[in-house]
């Protein structure tokens, strides 16, 4: 077997628990119970599933609980297959690669109160946040959980419901709650957040339109694109020797695009200083951005970890 670079954190499924409303809780841990890479309350990770799918889930445990990642997965029979694979095919002891955690809330000392609105399984990121703030007693949290009838993660929410931190709204009995009322008026010491079905998020964005953007947090369950330079444009790499074409998305590095295309390039710094990823170019207008090539070398080479392209097509000597 050819040695491959490691791109994910290796975890083992150490627990699977039925959590109601078609939801299962999966606990992932290091094979030797080593601490896992740290995360912020409400962060999410990508799971690289055995069937090749990559799916994003929020962590529902809190950052202090740092030797495991706990995710809640609702089985979506009509979904794209990620939740079915997890529910039906994954067992305790299976190895799953995960990404480094992303996103989540940067706790802000100026915020004294958090008001979250979650729809159904959208409760997961806020469960992590609610647990974090309950333990650190840094801020007051109210989490409004809107469900039709059955509540996911009931066993894990019960103590938070008793403490008054979680307020459950059942639409089958009381109809839809008025989001404007739950959220209240803008207040510099209050932060509001929402996660749930798209229609709920749209309502939420409407009622919080007057709030300062820094005080509104929306979780959408999609991998956020990397910070993209607004001027970045997509381009195409033509590979002169192998004859292939590779599309580089706006803001993506050539290196990432080549890797996606199955082309292995040696790297070390990934920041344009070490010289490991040097590739020859033949035609086009590269934008160099490295700090290792001389002007003379730049006429023939570029560093794929940082270089971009000013032309729509760039021909590489690959």
């Amino acid at each position: 077997m050819k040695a491959r670079p490691i791109t994910t954190v290796k975890t083992v499924v150490t627990g699977i628990e039925e959590a109601g409303a078609g939801t299962k809780l999966f606990t992932l841990a290091d094979p030797d119970q080593w601490d896992l890479p740290p995360f912020k309350p409400g962060a999410h990770i990508d799971l690289h599933l055995p069937n090749g799918l990559v799916r994003t889930y929020s962590l529902c445990n809190e950052p202090a609980d740092n030797a495991r990642y706990v995710i809640a997965v609702k089985r979506e029979a009509e979904g794209r297959g990620g939740s079915r694979a997890l529910h039906d095919d994954v067992g305790v002891g299976d190895v799953i690669g995960v990404s480094l955690p992303r996103g989540g809330l940067e706790p802000d000392a100026r915020v004294a109160r958090y008001v979250f609105v979650a729809g159904g399984i959208g409760v997961t990121p806020f469960l992590s946040m609610a647990r974090h703030f309950q333990r650190t007693a840094q801020a007051d949290v109210t989490l409004h959980l809107v469900v039709r009838e059955e509540m996911p993660l009931a066993a894990h929410l019960s103590s938070l419901i008793e403490a008054g931190t979680v307020v459950v709204h059942r639409t089958s009995r009381e109809g839809r709650p008025d989001l404007a009322e739950l959220v209240g008026d803008p207040n510099p010491e209050t932060m509001v957040g929402c996660c749930g079905p798209e229609s709920m998020i749209e309502d939420f964005e409407r009622v919080t339109a007057a709030w300062p953007a820094a005080r509104v947090h929306v979780e959408r369950f999609v991998a956020p694109p990397p910070i993209i330079d607004p001027d970045a444009k997509p381009f195409t790499l033509s590979l002169a020797r192998s004859g292939g074409e590779i599309h580089v998305r706006a803001g993506q590095t050539m290196l990432a695009a080549l890797k996606e295309g199955g082309i292995d390039i040696a790297t070390s710094c990934c920041g344009g200083i070490c010289g490991a990823c040097k590739v020859g170019w033949i035609e086009g207008k590269p934008v160099h951005r490295d700090r290792v090539l001389s002007p003379y070398e730049r006429e023939r080479y570029l560093m794929v970890c940082v270089a971009g392209s000013d032309s729509e097509r760039l021909v590489l000597d690959l």
Partner: peptide
Amino acid sequence: LAPRAFLPMR
């Protein structure tokens, strides 16, 4: 040390 890639050093 850390036993695997990306894990926090201990």
